[in-house]
Design a protein around this nucleic acid. Sequence first.
DNA 1: AGAGATTCAGAGC
DNA 2: ATCGCTCTGAATCTCT
Length: 1118
Amino acid sequence: MESTDESEDNLRESRQSPEVDQDFVAPPQRVSQIDSVTYSSFLRSLDDEHLIEHINSCSQSKDHSQITASIHDSKLIASSPRTNRVERQLSLDEHNFSSVSTDPFDDDLDSQLLGASTPTRATANPNDDSADAYPDDEQNNTVGEIHAFGDYATYFRTKHLKQQKEDEEYIKWDLKRRAQLNGGRAVAVKPIFEGCIVYVNGHTNPSINEIHRLIIVHSGKFISYLSNKGAATHIICDRLTPKKKVEYRNYKVVRAQWVVDCVASNELLDWTQYRLISEIEYGQKRLQFGDSPTRHSGSDSVTPSNESDSELANSMADNNEDPLLEELEDDFIEPIEPSGSNDVGSKGEKKIMDAKHPEFLKHFFANSRLHHLSMWKADLKLRFLRRIVKENKSGETKRTSQGIRVIFHVDFDCFFATASCLNRPELDINKDPIAVTHGGKSSDVASCNYVARNFGVKNGMWVSQAKKLCPNLIMLDYDYKRYESYSSEFYNYFLSYDIFDSIFPVSIDEVLIDASSHFAQNEENLVDMVNALSTRIRDDIFKFTKCSVSVGVSRNVMLAKLALRKAKPNGQFFLYEGVDEFLDSISVKSLPGIGRSIQERLADVLNQPKTMDIYIRDLKAFSKTKLISILGDKTGVKLYEYARGIDDTSLVIDTSNPEALLGRKSVSVDVNFGIRFDTVSELDDFLIRIAKELYSRLISLGVCGSNLTLKLAKRAPGAAVNPAKYLGMGYCDFVNKSSHLGVPTNDWGIIGSELKALYRMVNVPVKELRGISISLTKLRDVENLKSSKQMKLPFKKTKELVRTEFGAFSKLKPIDSIQIESGSKRKSNIAEGNVNISGYHDYFNKESEIDWEVLDALPWDLRREIQKELERRGMIPVSPSKAPPGTKAYLQQLIPTQIGSTPKYVRVFEKPQLKSPRKRQKLHSKSPSPNKQVMVGESQFYDCSVINELPLNIKAEVLKDMKYRKKVKEFDMTALKDKVSMKYEKSKAMVDEVSSEWISQQRTILQRPKFLNEKVSVHQVKLQLDKWIQSSLIQKGPHVDDVHVFASYLKDLSKQNVNSSMILINHIWKVLKYHESILAMSVLVESDEVMYMKEGIAEWKSSIDVHLLPIVDSDFDI
DNA sequence: AGAGATTCAGAGC
DNA sequence: ATCGCTCTGAATCTCT
Ligand SMILES: [Mn+2]
Ligand SMILES: [Mn+2]
């Protein structure tokens, strides 16, 4: 019925506005032969993504002469059921038997049906668990022999494997049950859903179980996942995340109520009345964009399930009283494009500081408040972790389990505003309305004081709006250095106490303190003591920083946070008694970890407007089960307990396992500002820069990772090309792609190439890019990796000593760019090896997930059309004039990562692996300049295809032979060597660049030696140096990065004490002499190790000359 | 009935 | 102009 109409509607509509939904564009109707004009215009009408889908879908057709027809069909199958005729025969009324409590499904269908189809549903008891996926036990009563078919719990658990069979059994069982209830007579169940294949996504009301039951009982088919796309005819879903919305565009996505209503009315109702994704919604404005400082994060769009689209549009237009909406609209105003200015003037346009600028990252991060906040936080967490490790406090938990906890939460009042204000003596933070911001009209208010807040100004607001609310708002600049120094005072203050069980940094301006044991003995005057300490803290911090802090205290973290909220500004509050009354009037959103999403989901259930506050007293009406069904397992329980003042969040810093000692699980670099590219080449450059940024962070953290994720923000359809915020990201969809590197690495070259490859696997045109994030996970400690590699070497490292180093110098421990050699055999991937050298990727403007095998298998005429279209779009390089390029090999070579998803690289970087020095030494000895390090095997191409094999196949004696040289020449070693050294030079230059950036980062840390009272003795440094020298000698000398870092350390040290620097350099010299003398005595005359070490010593000496001595500069002589 | 991948949401100013 | 980061834990998906 409606399905056919629907497709035609879509066809019609898409002809009118081809941009809206191209999935239903009609392919040519001709079947027997290809009308290339029609077909190519069809191809042309598809956007990139759909074009690729189309190509790949061709594989489903065996008969290529009918390809267009098949394509047509497969599209339609995906979007409409082909056989959904409904039998109109009468059957038993559903209500007559559906409410039997012995139904193993028992979900009280009656009340479902009644409640759902009447308005009174809205006022239903929030504790109504009838639709829960967590039926109470007592509902699973037996029903005699019928139970022999198995209870539904078991049935459901195994459904993934035996679903169909089980479904049949359930239907039989159900019929039997119905018959039984009907006095033994057989019952006909109307096959309402015949032909429907249904998939349920996410939480629904009624529950997935219930939908499953209703569907199969009425002859529909239920599938558990969408692995085979297109299999489902309907998707049942009540809440769609943006990602899913895109994914499900081609399906009929209906609300769960559709199923209920169908059953209630006993016929297949028009699904479009229940659709969750409206036709015109795609590409339209979406709500929820103006209210949070992190507007870009998470879901920008949420389907307005209760509003029609026109309402949505109207609300956008009408609601001008809400300044947030106004701001939102700004985002969709298309400014006059200075057309052409982007493309021309390739030389002199370096003025714009966007991501094309080589210095952009540096500039951006130097100014980004969120970047600073994140980095500060990470740094603090690491410092406190190391503090615990060093003092061997095992998480700092003296406290025993009994007794009341006393948690302090201390936080600066509007930190940035207060701190920045201190630079402006003429201003009064208590009288003048003040905000910290970059100043432009679409600039964010990072922090505003309480005077400004009285005008309605809020953090995260744009200046234009804040000015409207408070025309006299005074805007101050950021002053990150100042913030750091106040924070340092703040933390050092708390570290000066020794009464605390635990000090837990929350952020630059905020700390949680467990003081339980301090108050454990005297409970009688607990309140007075706590208040006294709170006052003292506030007074002291103010004395040190002239900034006001507030203090909240209570028996757990959540309550302390709420107490702090009440205390602000410039106050203190000990929430001790009357917790329940206190909680009642707290709004849910102000609970930690509870944000807008949860608030809205609750509002939905309570049938309140989304924006209306929900208070904890409202929450108490919900049972735990109900909350779990709404919010999920953990969150449901958490909220349930929060509502009762329960929170067992621990302030213990975890040091219990190696992963915890790493201090983090991921390292990432996000840039969602200033991302504007015109060509893929520009993007590639940026990807390399961002990879280097990641690399430098990895180096200073001493970690490697093996899983890389690229997250792209793509301008949303309908969003302005230039958002209201200058260089902002505007309104975006997000695309993730991640890859297993196979082995841990920190190598920016590898990361960079992989990023390029990842970009080419998604379908985001360069010009649409608005944000780029990269993230490395599955982290490993470099020291661990190194030591595991060095086990079989004479100089064995003890990682523990290094591990427990703490303070400034711990960041300076010698760190090699990690070198790992994959033991597993992998495919030789020549194309990959060419990435950096030939630059083949410049041919691409777009990328794809095109299945080349499918394309290659197509008949010639079809393939030609598709290839023409791909070329036209720049998605494949223009064919060489001579031959049709359609050979598989050729195309695969172009997309190297297509070949096998199993990787990929051998991660060998910068230095030859110790494992097999022999081979490299021999190769190296052929180099015309033996003193210069040649980094072999930087890419797997060289490493695996040629070099690795040599030493295994050729004996040492033979190596000296002329035959060897001949043999080597047969391998074209000269050309290879040239390439290698070329690449080496290039990468060395880039490493230098990186390390200088890195060093500049390090310096800021070193400039605060007082912080955390960490001092490193010269003796410790010497020990460290010994280890460094020893480990590096067999690698032919120190790593350039390490030298630079050490040099920068020396530089700082020299400022305080030149003598210490000289002592250290002298020490290095002595150690080198020591090793030299050992070598001289060595019996092994020509062993490779000896040669390596000699070379290493030479390299060390030159490093001293070049890098270290100039620092102490004077007439210092060794 | 759990592992691994992906996605979301929330936090700080 | 404008500097819309970064990490975590939970939920959800997919597959076995
Ligand atoms: Mn604060
Ligand atoms: Mn804070």
